[in-house]
Amino acid sequence: MERVTSWIARLVFVFLYLPIAALIVYSFNSSEVSYRFDGLSFRWYAELFRDQMLLESLRTSAIVGVIAALLATVIGFLTAFGLVRFRVKGRGFFLGAILIPLIVPEIVLGVALLTVFSTVGVPTGLFTLVLGHVVITLPLATLVLMGAMSSLDPSLSEAATDLGASPWMTFRRVLFPLLRPSILAAFMLSFTTSFSNIVISTFTSGVGTTTLPLRIYSSLKTGLTPELNALGTILVVLTLGVILIVGVSQMRRILAGPRP
């Protein structure tokens, strides 16, 4: 039986990569139609960079992603620092509150935000997109940074204090350098989450601020083009880049918890 389940597990890994493999192979197909393979070409990649609408939405997604990820990382850092390194009454309550967006289904959060924005009279656009993306990335950034901060050896900052460093010096010279990889991880994961978000964006984007996923979605409704396969392949490669930057061991700690 163990052999059977092992084989199932191996097949699942094949299952995880079949669509990605098809995507990559077909992105190099020079043929206009997917049912004929005419040979290798970079034609669709070149086509991609001529698509003004697509590039425009790429720009929107990049701007929203960077701002939202920066905000989430900064606010998440403050939150994690406050919760881990200060004596805060009702710590569990605060932590629970900050994790609410992870529990509320995204679509509910999306319509709730849309309702409030339209009630208050805030026009949808870059601003509302950023706000929506901060909400969903903040818990993520906070958790990543809390994990990193609680695994720091407290004697390090005590040693710095004993050696006469001011709290600010201790932070700048000891804590910050130690936390830098995790800060980068929090930023990268927040950016990736924002960049690929479609649910929140559906309700918070406005005219002229179509994000890349929204653009892809609307063009998919009329049919899949080889150009989109090329775009998908680039996004897969970028995902690999993010994983490399964050680092495998850190990624593992974030998704599968600390070493038991």
């Binding site: 669509p19 995507l23 892809i216 979605y217 998919l220 899949l224 775009l231 998908g232 996004l235 994983i243």
Partner: peptide, 10 residues
């Protein structure tokens, strides 16, 4: 981590 839409249209 791959874009949700890419995973879907693949």
């Amino acid at each position: 981590l791959t874009d949700f839409l890419v995973r879907t249209f693949a």
